[in-house]
């Protein structure tokens, strides 16, 4: 299969079930909502080292937020249900609570699993906090030096999907980066999907474990490192000199699939030789995104 002269490998991306929460952060203006969201989602690229994965889903207008102010929607994922509230409490407490003018609301209101995030954060108010029930939901008002920080008492949690991916194999680094950037632009603001890595792009794809160091849980993906083509069981085709990866997390498999479809098509441009995907033989993750099936 070829798109714009780019070979689509007959393979699949293997992804995992994770737990996901959606946060709506609002601010006096879009700048301050974004400032909080950027800090909140910082150092949240991979559960391997960050314990969570997070990213900005999209920006919201005042008509789309609970308090009528501009906002940002953030998706937040962890591998298990226990660590999601832990990460949310720590991160919201250090990044959104601290950010001027912001408020924080639940974006998965229909999810039956509820995480008592605001309820935990309320104690920062040192007994001066107050709650209000509005439309059946409880909100906590925390007194802060600026005025008050408003946070919803509970946040919804549901099963999500982490680790959707595709690899861009290009003739050179410039072409790989241009294709990756085009893919990211095409996937930005799609509902239910985030790209947790810097700029949405990964240059250091990893494999499970290590060939040399016993204590490493992930090491460089040497089959796709062009510099190692001559000395490893390389999967880098001749003519390919740079590989970049796009990793996608989302609220469900259809959202990931829709984003991969758009992103891969955008990445098929001059200088790109092939698009492939990372998997573990289908033995580890329950979600398999077959590239040719998605693009058919």
């Amino acid at each position: 299969m070829k798109i714009e002269g780019v070979t689509i490998e007959d393979t699949f991306a293997e992804a995992f079930t994770m737990r996901v929460a959606r946060l709506i952060i609002t601010g006096r203006n879009a700048k301050w909502a974004r400032e909080a969201a950027v800090k909140l989602t910082g150092f949240a690229t991979s559960v391997i080292g960050c314990k969570c994965e997070a990213g900005i889903e999209r920006e919201l207008t005042g008509d789309e937020t609970p308090d009528g102010r501009p906002g940002v929607s953030v998706l937040f994922l962890t591998l298990d249900k226990e660590s999601l509230p832990e990460q949310l409490i720590v991160r919201i407490g250090q990044t959104v609570l601290t950010c001027p003018t912001t408020a924080c609301f639940d974006g998965l209101t229909l999810a039956p699993d509820r995480l008592a995030v605001g309820k935990a954060l309320r104690v920062f108010g040192d007994g001066f906090q107050a709650s209000k029930v509005i439309g059946g939901k409880r909100y906590w008002r925390l007194p802060v030096m600026e005025g008050e920080f408003l946070v919803e008492e509970t946040f919804g949690m549901q099963k999500g999907v982490g680790g959707g991916n595709f690899l861009i194999l290009a003739e050179n680094a410039d072409a790989a980066l241009a294709a990756a950037e085009a893919a990211v632009v095409a996937m930005t603001n799609l509902p239910g999907v985030i790209l947790p890595f810097p700029g949405g792009v990964v240059r250091s794809g990893s494999k499970v474990g290590s060939k040399r160091y016993k204590n490493m849980i992930a090491t460089t993906n040497d089959p796709f490192d062009p510099t190692l083509r001559a000395i490893t069981a390389s999967q880098v085709p001749v003519g390919v000199n740079s590989v970049l990866e796009i990793v996608l997390d989302g609220t469900d498999a259809p959202a990931i699939e829709a984003a991969m479809r758009v992103g891969i098509r955008a990445a098929c441009r001059p200088g790109v030789v092939a698009i492939t995907a990372g998997n573990y033989g289908g033995k580890l993750g329950p979600h398999h995104f077959h590239l040719r099936k998605i693009l058919a």
Binding site: G68, R69, I134, Y139, G147
Partner: peptide, 19 residues
Amino acid sequence: ACTYRPPHLPLLFRYLRTR
């Protein structure tokens, strides 16, 4: 105490307008 914008009031007012 002070003069400020209580952040929960827009929520309350928008709810009353909608409901």
